[in-house]
Simulated assay, not measured.
Amino acid sequence: MENRITKLFNIDYPIIQAGMIWNSGWRLASAASNSGILGLIGAGSMYPDVLREHIQKCKAATNKPFGVNVPMLYPNITEIMDIIVEEDVKIVFTSAGNPKTWTKWLQDRGITVVHVVSSVKFALKAQDAGVDAIVAEGFEAGGHNGRDETTTLTLIPMVKEQLNIPLIAAGGIATGKAMLACMVLGADGVQVGSRFVASEESSAHQNFKEVVVNAKEGDTQLTLKELAPVRLIKNKFYDEVQELYKTGPSVDDLVKLLGRARAKRGMFEGDLDDGELEIGQIAGLIHDIKPVATIVKDIVSEFEKAKAEVVNL
């Protein structure tokens, strides 16, 4: 399955395991890379010394390419970038910031840079900044999201129309059929997040994994746009957010309710009532917890089968 994405990352299949906070530690990233796709460590929930440990453990667990996802709003961003270079990581996915800030600095040190966007406007800004590829993430995605609520089905062809560099689709992708659909629309590969949350190797708490596999259509909602748009499973904390919105809250009011470590409490520690539970809409199609290798095999197998069926239409 060779194309621009497999060549760029030296992987077997054009699939990226998303670098999600509190879910994407070294076990998930190494298992993904060992399965022939690109594994990513999610640096957004790691202190610098913890990230270094995860990188070192990932290197010991796989001889395949892997990368690190870095939200550029991270307060220790310079230290994080220095660790990535010191540990000889060759692939970095950046998000939540201006790609011009770090792209050239990383590339000058031999690192491939991919930037995550949620609109055509920011895709073009990232291309102008010189990134090697783009992840265009639709409204369906879990975690932090675009304020414009552009769906993947709409976003990918609009970005493809104006982009010259490789394009990776994200948001609502957990199956081989969805992967094929995105590639028909113009993507060179896909990034998969929520499906890998419900994997044996994910660092998510078992309570959270079970909530994900039991989720139904309509159980998630995009909220907290005034801070950073995030898609949450509806729980006690989500209900409190909605009640606060009825009062016309200020940003400070929302920040106070959110507090500290709310996502850690929910996804990593398993507090299903007061924790922030971030997941994509595709959770309604995720019904079991499987090893990463099995998930990848299932996606690739379904992709090939669907591709053959489409040819025969």
Rank of each mutant, 00 (worst) to 15 (best):
K7Q: 14
N10P: 05
D12Y: 11
Y13P: 09
I15E: 09
M20G: 14
I21E: 15
R27D: 03
A29F: 03
S30N: 05
A32I: 12
N34Y: 05
N34A: 05
S35R: 08
I37E: 00
I41W: 11
A43V: 08
C58R: 07
K59P: 05
T62N: 10
P65E: 10
V70I: 15
E87P: 06
S95I: 09
W102I: 13
K104D: 00
G110Q: 00
T112A: 09
H115L: 05
V116Y: 03
K121Q: 15
A126D: 02
Q127N: 03
A129W: 01
V131L: 05
I134W: 03
I134V: 14
V135A: 00
A136C: 07
E137L: 04
G138P: 01
E149K: 13
Q162M: 10
P166L: 06
A169V: 11
A170G: 04
G171V: 07
K177F: 06
M179W: 13
G186D: 13
G189W: 12
F196R: 08
S199Y: 03
F208S: 01
G218Q: 01
G218I: 05
T220C: 02
L222V: 15
P229Q: 06
V230M: 08
V230A: 13
N235V: 06
V241N: 12
E243M: 05
E243N: 12
Y245G: 09
K246P: 01
P249C: 10
D253E: 09
D253V: 09
V255Y: 11
K256W: 06
R260L: 06
A261I: 02
A261C: 05
A261G: 10
R262W: 01
K264F: 03
I286H: 10
I286G: 07
H287G: 06
K297G: 02
I299K: 04
V300K: 04
E304N: 04
V311Y: 08
L313I: 13
